[in-house]
Design a protein around this nucleic acid. Structure first.
Lengths: 198, 198
DNA sequence: AATAATCGACCGACCAGTCGGTCTAAGAGA
DNA sequence: TCTCTTAGACCGACTGGTCGGTCGATTATT
């Protein structure tokens, strides 16, 4: 029991990485299980040993994305700093995120579209996004207490901000010119910040 | 030439309406051409007489959505009124739009996801969204000239606003609680409005 | 020997799109 | 007025390729 290499977590990661590459290239729908098998340098049998269906694989893939992003976001808010600086940090985090995760973003959109129809997927996605929103709302609450932010409904404001960043990502994916530039994202952040600072 | 009933436009509309119903129920991907055929009360041959492929049908369907929404939006901005009132009118337009077009929204998301991968689709989508943005930017420019709005980059601000509404729709689709309520949308609108009013 | 992990040929459900054919109505000619 | 022709509109059984998933065989590990 102790000296078990336990290759299974490594394999799952390997397969998920392969899936990420294939999804980025073809999208979830166009991606064939055989493509992923090939990219993972494994066999179909091995893949189905670790994931019981394509849907299962997709869910695990998205789950990993969300978990990683949430961790990064939480890390970002750990340090003690004034409200305005935090907002700007978030702004820059999103800017980086948008550029880097570029390819994978289409997959997330596909998953959102799926969430529109499938209640189980929807619940899972909502849960993760709500985590973001809660984080933002808490931050705003604190800022209000400290008098750094004018009095406002923290949750509603958090939703509006989250919506703006999600929307910016969406517009960028869809090709709206300059929607992804640093200046654009800073501009958007300042737009709400000007309103919120007391 | 004159006494031709020319049933073809009517048929296309009939098919597109059927597609709207089926897409709303099953999503673009799960929708079978046979489902649409049945909903349209026509035959497969007839459908393929008017649309050369499933992709062609989807494109036509989305095109119609965008054209209609753009018309409604343009209409909305026709009347002469102060900046703040216009923004609130837009706010309410979106609120209504979100509630009403609810079912179809998932389809649009699916199309956005497709745009992430297909350059031709992307160009088409961008064109339509840019129209919204231009409309907003023009409105903001005028407001600045009239001194109703503080000095700011109209296009960037327009993009941020458009992003916020798109994002709000997305969050609602994904099931974030209260993202679709009138108060939420008004709150979001006021968030940027407070910043913009001079 | 037993179990975990891996392999890949194969199955069969599924569905976009085809195709040979029918029906109707509008001209054309007688 | 009555055929005949033509073509646009429409029908629906059928096909051919595709791909998620299976399974019996094989290898590695304990």
């Amino acid at each position: 029991m102790p000296p078990k290499p336990d290759v299974s977590e490594e394999r799952r990661g390997q397969i998920l990485n392969a899936a990420a590459a294939v999804f980025a290239r073809l999208g979830v729908h166009e991606a064939r299980m055989d493509d992923i098998v090939e990219a993972a340098d494994l066999s179909k049998g091995a893949l189905y040993w670790y994931f019981k269906s394509k849907d299962d694989l997709i869910a695990a893939f998205i789950e990993r994305l969300f978990v990683r992003a949430n961790e990064a976001f939480r890390e970002l808010l750990k340090t003690e700093q004034p409200f305005q600086d935090r907002m700007m940090a978030i702004s820059r985090y999103f800017a980086g995120d948008i550029q880097e995760a570029s390819r994978v973003r289409g997959v997330v959109l596909e998953y959102y579209a799926l969430a529109a129809r499938d209640a189980r997927v929807r619940d899972r996605v909502r849960e993760h996004i709500d985590t973001y929103i809660e984080l933002l709302a808490t931050m705003i609450s604190q800022a209000i207490e400290r008098g750094e932010c004018r009095l406002t409904d923290p949750r509603k404001t958090a939703i509006a901000i989250e919506a703006m960043y999600e929307g910016l990502t969406l517009l960028w994916i869809v090709g709206v010119n300059a929607a992804n530039s640093d200046e654009m994202i800073d501009h958007a952040t300042h737009l709400v910040l000007d309103s919120l600072l007391s």
